[in-house]
């Protein structure tokens, strides 16, 4: 009976299983980064940024143009992160702040509008030539053996970069004064102001950091999916799933959620029978799992329970 549902049984081919898990962890850590960006913004401003993926997309396209113009790779990476940072800050200041004290749906619609706007702008600027565009990786795509599985150097590169980003964020939030101020702002903006924290600046910084983290995710994804105006959409959806899975206000939750979603996605694609599910159904299946998880923990695995007030 089980054989019917599990196309190639995992225990018959441990190598395939290992490969799927490791590459799942690699894509999962990209989801974790985008999920972290979403959580950073949600914690500080209570906004779900639906334009997170498109912001990263715009930055990655800009980087592609810079590479084409002959700038050295490391300079472009640096500029890309700075651009993501600046874009996040700019968006917060110009279009998010004015709607902050308005009905919550307005912010949702503003980020949705931004999503459509940025997508269109990128199409206008970059869709003139051929699409998708090739975006190279500094890590290369050579296969290497890691104990029992073969994985690409790019996957390893993704894991390393994601770990570095997470470590930097952890240090920033837990061991610097700036991080203390940002956490305080997320918890209680009013009291933070009385402590002398510049709350507006902290909110802007939250968006800026999210923009930078998103940009890193964008440049890690682009070599795999290639570059076209919608290339971040699927990533964004998996990242939403990851963030919701872990709890929208929990950074560790976003990381665990991202890794889980990445691995689950790969296993669904490999081990479900093709005639019923198969690879093209892995997104719906992953999302189904997400909805089931939400049934049992509506605030995600690590999220705080919100108290109801009259």
């Amino acid at each position: 009976m089980i054989e019917v549902f599990l196309a190639p049984a995992p225990w018959n081919d441990p190598e395939l299983f290992g490969e799927q898990v490791i590459s799942g962890l690699a894509t999962g850590s990209i989801y974790a980064l985008v999920a972290l960006a979403i959580v950073l913004i949600y914690r500080s401003t209570d906004v779900i940024n639906f334009a997170q993926g498109e912001m990263a997309m715009l930055v990655t396209f800009s980087m592609w143009s810079l590479l084409l113009a002959g700038f050295p790779a490391w300079t472009v990476i640096f500029i890309g992160i700075a651009l993501g940072f600046a874009l996040g800050a700019f968006v917060e200041r110009t279009i998010i702040r004015p709607v902050e004290d308005k009905p919550p749906l307005n912010v949702v619609v503003v980020t949705l509008g931004l999503f459509v706007f940025l997508n269109s702008i990128a199409t206008w600027i970059w869709a003139q030539g051929e699409l998708p565009k090739v975006f190279s990786t500094p890590f290369g795509f050579t296969s290497v053996d890691v104990s029992l599985a073969r994985v690409t150097t790019h996957s390893i590169g993704i894991l390393v970069v994601a770990l570095i980003v997470m470590a930097v964020l952890y240090l920033l939030f837990n061991h610097t004064k700036l991080g203390l101020g940002m956490r305080a702002t997320a918890h209680n903006p009013g009291a933070s102001r009385l402590m002398g924290v510049n709350v507006g600046r902290m909110l802007m910084l939250g968006w800026a950091l999210a923009g930078a983290v998103g940009a890193v995710a964008g440049m890690l994804v682009a070599p795999i999916t290639f570059l076209f105006p919608g290339f971040m959409l699927a990533v964004l959806l998996y990242a939403f799933a990851a963030a919701v899975f872990g709890g929208l206000d929990s950074p560790p939750g976003a990381i665990v959620g991202g890794l889980f979603v990445g691995v689950a996605e790969n296993l669904f694609g490999t081990y479900t029978p093709g005639d019923i599910f198969g690879p093209e159904m892995k997104l719906p299946l992953t999302l189904l799992v997400l909805v089931i998880v939400l049934m049992f923990r509506p605030q995600g695995l690590f999220g705080r329970v919100q108290t109801r007030r009259v």
């Binding site: 279009i95 004015p98 709607v99 307005n106 619609v109 503003v110 949705l112 509008g113 931004l114 999503f115 459509v116 706007f117 940025l118 997508n119 269109s120 702008i121 199409t123 206008w124 869709a127 003139q128």
Partner: peptide, 17 residues
């Protein structure tokens, strides 16, 4: 022609603001 959504997105944002 290339960016019809840009107008829409911008209008949406401005109306909401």
């Amino acid at each position: 022609q290339k960016a019809p959504g840009a107008i829409q997105g911008a209008v949406v944002i401005f109306v909401v603001l």
